[in-house]
Amino acid sequence: MNLKEELSRISQAVEIDEKKSHYKVSVEDPSKLIKAAQDLKSLGFDHVVSVTGVDYPDKIEVIWHVSSYSVEELKSINLALSVSVKKPEPRKEYDPNKRALVLKRPPVRVPSLVSVWPSGAFNEREAFEMFGIIFEGHPDLRYLMLPEDFYEAWPLRKDFQHEKMKVFLE
């Protein structure tokens, strides 16, 4: 199978660097994500290794790293399926507990791929709590590791600030 040909049928933006084992498929429109994932699965990429976000000043890139256990020639390949979503503007809201205006950073929304790859379920929960990515259609999108006082804190975003952070660091 010619992987490059097959992948370019899924999306126009394909990066392949065999020497560095870098394979990346970028989907522009989040609504086409599930179709792309189903195509990749029918190629033989059958499990998710990692789901993560990358925070940029204006957007969040969500990356699924997938690989194969069942197709012999794909076992050496680790493919990234990426989609970028624009971040909504942060806004100030009144917080009754603190009795003050606080800066809220609204979450972004992408479709969940758990229906295609069940192996991504825990990974997507982690990306949700760390980056504020709501995976629409995830059967059980709850906080996984963070305690309750990190509610909507999205700690792996670059603009994360926490009241206790200075105490911890110094």
């Binding site: 084992s21 059958d46 499990h47 998710v48 290794v49 256990y69 069942s70 076992k75 050496s76 680790n78 790859w117 069940p118 192996s119 991504g120």
Partner: peptide, 25 residues
């Protein structure tokens, strides 16, 4: 199930999947 749930390592190979990162990557 082992393939679709994406388990790894000795647990994966105990289920009959021939995959080892040392061999394949």
């Amino acid at each position: 199930d082992a393939i679709s749930l994406g388990v790894v390592g000795p647990n994966l190979r105990a289920s009959g999947v021939y995959y080892d990162t040392r061999k394949h990557k």
